[in-house]
Amino acid sequence: VFVDDHLLEKVLELNAKGEKRLIKTWSRRSTIVPEMVGHTIAVYNGKQHVPVYITENMVGHKLGEFAP
């Protein structure tokens, strides 16, 4: 499973602090992992960042699938 390192670091850091804030990313190719559930990730679609709230059903899919 591929997840960009910088994105995973941000998610794990927020989980350690117990925070839930918006994470901006250009990494549409990253796979959604269970650690991301409950976070809102702003995924770049080529024009703007689209906020995507991550749920359990999204695990295993790519971030780009949810930012048309």
Rank of each mutant, 00 (worst) to 15 (best):
K62S: 11
A42S: 08
G38C: 06
Y44P: 07
K10W: 08
T31W: 08
V50P: 04
E13R: 07
E35G: 07
N45D: 14
S27L: 04
L7Q: 01
Y44M: 07
L63C: 02
F66C: 05
G46M: 09
N57P: 11
K17M: 12
K17E: 08
N45P: 02
V33Y: 04
L22F: 06
E19G: 05
T25W: 03
E35S: 10
G38M: 07
H61A: 11
G60S: 10
R29V: 13
I54G: 00
K24S: 09
M36P: 00
W26Y: 15
N15L: 04
T25P: 01
L14K: 02
G38D: 14
E56A: 13
H49Y: 15
R21E: 14
Y53K: 14
V50G: 03
V50Y: 08
D4T: 01
Q48C: 15
P68I: 13
L63P: 00
K24H: 12
H61R: 14
T40I: 10
N45L: 07
E19I: 13
F2C: 15
G64E: 08
L8Q: 03
D5P: 15
K10S: 14
N45M: 06
G46V: 04
P68Y: 08
N15I: 07
G18Q: 08
V3E: 06
V50D: 10
V11N: 01
A67Q: 04
Y44H: 10
F2P: 06
Y44E: 03
G46L: 13
G64R: 12
L63W: 00
V52A: 04
D4R: 00
V33A: 05
P34M: 15
A42F: 04
D5A: 15
W26T: 13
N45Q: 08
H6D: 15
T31M: 08
A16S: 11
D5S: 15
D5Q: 15
G60E: 06
T25I: 02
E13Q: 09
F2I: 08
K24W: 14
L8A: 03
K47H: 12
G64A: 11
N57L: 13
L63N: 01
Y44D: 05
V43D: 00
T25Q: 02
L7S: 01
H39A: 02
A67Y: 03
T31Q: 09
E9W: 07
E13H: 07
A67E: 03
P68K: 11
V1Q: 14
N15D: 03
V37A: 09
S27Y: 07
Q48N: 12
V50R: 07
A42T: 03
T25R: 02
K10A: 13
G64L: 07
E35V: 14
T31P: 03
R29G: 11
E35F: 08
E65Q: 12
T25G: 02
P34Q: 11
G18P: 02
K10C: 15
T31I: 08
F2S: 08
E56K: 09
I54P: 01
